[in-house]
Write a protein that binds this DNA or RNA. Structure first.
Lengths: 116, 116
DNA sequence: TATGTAGATCGATGAGCGTCGATCCCGCCG
DNA sequence: CGGCGGGATCGACGCTCATCGATCTACATA
């Protein structure tokens, strides 16, 4: 682990960076992009509650049960569910008239592991 | 744990909701808003990498070391650091010309616990 | 005091987001 | 076949965001 606590020297030749360059492997970038995509999908109170309900019920839930949980129109809830599906956090299945959503459990694992 | 897997009955009296109402304590809402705020701040690859660097170095890091890690202008990196500070994820301290940032360890605890 | 430097702030710009009503699609049932 | 109802999609609106160059503030040093 590199120690970055050193204060950079002032009065340095022009054109040089102000500090020792920190080695920063680009491997991190792909992981950061994946985790940021998941975090972004969770970065809305409605979607956070949707995932929370789906997780707590440990099975599939009908959309017609999710809509009345919020004071929002049905297209808005559908839009949030689509966001979660695009991020890979939830999956859906249509059976007859109804659509059922469920959590995709592996989707949150990387972020959870990173958060420790 | 309520079982939501039951399909709602069709052919119901008009005006009634389509399903049994799910008890949904409003206590969740405040927590969802707090966690969504944190997740939103993490929902950008640059900020995710910033937090990752700060966490891995387990101490304070000078801004002049953070800026060259990204192909971004200094004001943009400063903007991202402000977002993280507003969300309570990082703190900062100025010493002389330089500013140092560090992770606020409690900020991620609630989200980490929720993710399991 | 004057100059240079680190970092924050400002203003603008273009892209994206959350929300809604209206509409479309497609199974269901009389 | 025809109508209904659940859910997804569309188009629009207002707001937020990420990014930049320019500027501002505060400190350090000559």
């Amino acid at each position: 682990m590199t120690d970055l606590r050193l204060a950079p020297k002032t009065k340095r030749p022009a054109g040089e960076p102000c500090c020792e360059p920190v080695v920063y492997p680009d491997i991190e970038r792909a992981q950061a992009e994946r985790m940021a995509e998941v975090a972004k999908a969770l970065g809305d109170p409605v979607r956070m509650q949707l995932v929370d309900v789906l997780r707590k019920h440990a099975g599939e839930v009908c959309v017609c049960e999710l809509v009345p949980l919020f004071e929002l129109s049905q297209p808005t809830v559908s839009h949030h569910l689509k966001k979660l599906r695009d991020a890979g956090i939830v999956g859906s299945e249509r059976r007859g008239l109804w659509a059922y959503y469920y959590v995709e459990p592996e989707a949150l694992e990387e972020l959870a592991a990173w958060l420790g």
